[in-house]
């Protein structure tokens, strides 16, 4: 029991620094998610969700879950941003105006479920606990037998590709089907999926943080390119032109 404590105290300064970094990352995550909730412009929300993915991937690395961080960076920050933009082509560019109301039932459900989840984490093993079930029995068996049985240098790859091979094959089929469905929904390769979309006309100077329409209208024609007639139907990028 003394040994792990000794190990921790050896790394105390860097552990403190890592703790500081982790707390900062979590604070930034909180700020980004609240901003995503409050922002009405969908493009800003897409950019913020990319930032959120980068932050959470960073946090996964801090927790030593490198493979999860890899997936989060590739899927969350890379593919999801592009898919969200494609989906934005099919809808309006602004969220509908928020109607303030009192949804007490929803608040109650959220509080109860959140409290139950937090309560459930009290039973979870501590981070890095060597006696946790995930570290003690099965995981240790994989670590011991991997070198003898399939001699792969990376244990995670070995479990995914060999011990859980059929499971991974099924997952791949599921992901392939999902990708097909998303591509059919978005109609990639055709403009706006062949749909006619009418955007909500932007209210002038809706909020101080939204955009600078007046400044844009003067600078719009300086790009030298012919832009289509600025109707309310004209697609993304018009009112944001430099």
């Amino acid at each position: 029991m003394n040994e792990p404590l000794q190990l921790i105290s050896d790394f105390q300064p860097s552990a403190n620094l890592m703790q500081f970094i982790e707390i900062s990352i979590l604070t930034l995550l909180l700020v980004v998610s609240i901003a995503m909730l409050r922002m009405r412009r969908l493009f800003g929300v897409v950019m913020l969700s990319g930032i959120y993915s980068f932050l959470s991937a960073l946090f996964f690395v801090a927790l030593d879950a490198v493979d999860v961080a890899f997936t989060e960076a590739a899927v969350g920050a890379g593919i999801s941003t592009i898919l969200m933009l494609s989906a934005m082509l099919l809808t309006a560019r602004r969220e509908k105006p928020f109607v303030p109301g009192h949804a007490f039932l929803a608040l109650l459900v959220c509080v109860v479920v959140g409290g139950a989840l937090v309560y459930a984490t009290f039973d979870a093993p501590l981070y890095g606990d060597p006696m946790a079930p995930a570290n003690a029995y099965v995981g240790q068996a994989y670590v011991d037998r991997m070198a003898v049985e399939i001699s792969m240098p990376n244990i995670v790859t070995g479990v995914l590709a060999s011990y859980r091979g059929y499971d991974t094959m099924g997952e791949t089929a599921v992901i392939f089907t999902a990708a097909l469905g998303v591509m059919l929904l978005l109609g990639l390769g055709s403009e706006r999926g062949g749909r006619v979309v009418s955007d909500v006309p932007p209210e002038p100077e809706a909020s101080p943080s939204s955009d600078s329409t007046a400044q844009n209208s003067t600078a719009q024609n300086s790009t030298g390119q012919k832009s289509p007639a600025p109707t309310a139907n004209s697609p993304i990028g018009r009112e944001d032109a430099p």
Binding site: I82, L186, L188, I236, G237
Partner: peptide, 9 residues
């Protein structure tokens, strides 16, 4: 995306 306003080929 903002230059051509579409995704895809």
């Amino acid at each position: 995306f903002f230059r051509y306003r579409t995704m895809g080929r």
